[in-house]
């Protein structure tokens, strides 16, 4: 079975990459082992207390809590990208594994398919 890594690098609002990327993750989880990595502005997708209603768009951050039900349990966040944005793991909506750049390199090496959103 091929291993898929989904790398999400865009902020939650401003583009639809986050929302449509998450759709792809959920679909992927039905077929293959899925790992999720948040880096760059993608780490902002996991920020607690999002109030998207003021933008007239759907706040999809609660969906991250459902990932466990989809058997997506390997969720990683770049340590540097969190730190650069003044965030820590406590600011995020779900428990994640925070990894450094060496960890990201090792994680990517282990995958068969990497999809970026």
């Amino acid at each position: 079975m091929k291993k898929f890594l989904f790398v999400t690098r865009h902020a939650p609002y401003g583009t639809s990459f986050g929302k449509e990327g998450l759709d792809a993750v959920l679909m992927g989880s039905a077929f293959v082992p899925v790992t999720l990595l948040f880096m760059d502005d993608g780490v902002l997708q996991l920020k607690k207390d999002q109030r998207a209603a003021s933008l007239n768009i759907k706040d999809y951050s609660p969906t991250f809590a459902a990932l466990n039900d989809y058997d997506v349990k390997d969720i990683y966040v770049s340590a540097d990208c969190l730190k650069e944005r003044g965030l820590s793991a406590q600011d995020l909506v779900i428990p994640v594994a925070v990894i450094d750049d060496d960890g990201i390199r090792d994680l990517m090496k282990k995958q068969d398919v990497i999809l970026s959103f």
């Binding site: 792809a24 679909m27 039905a30 077929f31 293959v32 999809l115 970026s116």
Partner: peptide, 21 residues
């Protein structure tokens, strides 16, 4: 068709390359 075709492409190809992410 659905997103399943993207995943299927990843499973059945030696390389899946993304343009425009």
């Amino acid at each position: 068709s659905g997103l399943g075709q993207l995943i299927d492409a990843g499973i059945h190809s030696d390389r899946l390359i993304t343009f425009g992410a």
